[in-house]
Every structure is written in structure tokens, then in C-alpha cells.
């Protein structure tokens, strides 16, 4: 079994995401064979023109959605960390939706059971990433995110330091 922190999930870079929702359309196209953002496993949010972000399941280490399900319909794959939905057990009560801090669990408008990003297991790789025209979506681990944050903050610090260096 791989270390849990090696689990990968789809994350959007807030500096690169332009809120175009191509990911939503790609998701519904690949997973549902139609065009319909209300059936996408990833959703974009635009708070204002400067604040755009696509959000989907982050494969939490201790997923509250799984814990919240009173019918044990949700389980987390030990291998991949993906949240799997037992569609027969799910009755669409929505406890998991409420439990998820990211709005990544949604009720499917037709099947009326919940659906969650499965990293396009059947496609080999997440198709939203393939389609994102900005390269804003990435398959990351928490380690990679921490690394990116470190690099970005150090870069920023050195920029300040450079400014402070007397010429």
C-alpha cells in the first residue's frame, strides 16, 4: 500500500484559473456523454473577476463524507484514496454533501445519488486536466502542494531581500 500522502488529487492554481468552466464541460462530456455542467464532478466559482477557482474532491486523509454517511454508502479506496459511492446504498440524504468543506460531493440530478471525482480512473488520467486550456489544473499530492507553497514564499522573500540590498 502506498503512503497515504502520495495520494493524488486535482487542484487548481488560483493564479492560473480563469473561471472558464472548460473543466466542467470536459467532465460531463467524458463521464456523462453530454454537455451539462450541473453533472460535472468539478465546479468553478467566480466570486469576482479576480477570484476564480475550480474545486473538486481533495481525497481527504480522514474524509468527513465517509464518516457522515449513515448507510455506509461511501468508502475510501485504500490504494488511491478515491471516494467510492455504493449507488444502491446511497439514498441521496445529503449528509455527506453537508460534511464536505469543499462542495466536492454533489447529488446527481438524474440518478439522485451522490457522485464524486474519481480521477477518471477509466480514462487513465483526469480529463479536466487534459482539457484545461490554462494549465491551471494539476494532479498533486499534499507534499507537492507544500513544496509549491514553500518555493513560492521563498521566491517572494528573496524578492523583498533583493529590493533591500543597497545598490
Amino acid at each position: 500500500m502506498p503512503a497515504t500522502h502520495a495520494r493524488k488529487f486535482v487542484s487548481a492554481d488560483p493564479n492560473k484559473c480563469v473561471g472558464c468552466a472548460v473543466c466542467e464541460y470536459a467532465c460531463s462530456m467524458v463521464k456523462e456523454k453530454t454537455y451539462n455542467p450541473t453533472k460535472s464532478r468539478i465546479r468553478t466559482v467566480r466570486l469576482n473577476p479576480f477570484a476564480n477557482l475550480a474545486v473538486t474532491c481533495r481525497l481527504c486523509e480522514d474524509p468527513p463524507c465517509v464518516a457522515a454517511c449513515p448507510r455506509d454508502a461511501l468508502t475510501q479506496s485504500e490504494e488511491t484514496g478515491i471516494i467510492m459511492v455504493d449507488e444502491d446504498a446511497c439514498n441521496g440524504c445529503g449528509w455527506c454533501i453537508e460534511a464536505c468543506d469543499y462542495g466536492a460531493v454533489m447529488l446527481h440530478p438524474e440518478t439522485k445519488v451522490v457522485y464524486i471525482c474519481d480521477l477518471c480512473q477509466d480514462q487513465g488520467k483526469p480529463q479536466c486536466i487534459e482539457w484545461c486550456p490554462e494549465g491551471a489544473l494539476e494532479l498533486v499530492t499534499t507534499d507537492i502542494l507544500a513544496q509549491k507553497a514553500r518555493r513560492s514564499i521563498v521566491r517572494k522573500l528573496f524578492q523583498e531581500a533583493m529590493k533591500a540590498v543597497p545598490v
Binding site: V18, C20, P49, F50
Partner: peptide, 19 residues
């Protein structure tokens, strides 16, 4: 220009948002 954003389905993005 602080950000260039896009319309739905179009990642060409052209909306130059000035601040």
C-alpha cells in the same frame, strides 16, 4: 490589467480586467 479571464467553454480568455 490585473487579470485576464474567460467565458464559459473558452480558455482562449480575452477579458482584460483593469483595476
Amino acid at each position: 490589467i490585473k487579470k485576464i479571464i474567460g467565458c464559459a467553454t473558452c480558455g482562449m480568455r480575452c477579458d482584460h480586467i483593469a483595476f
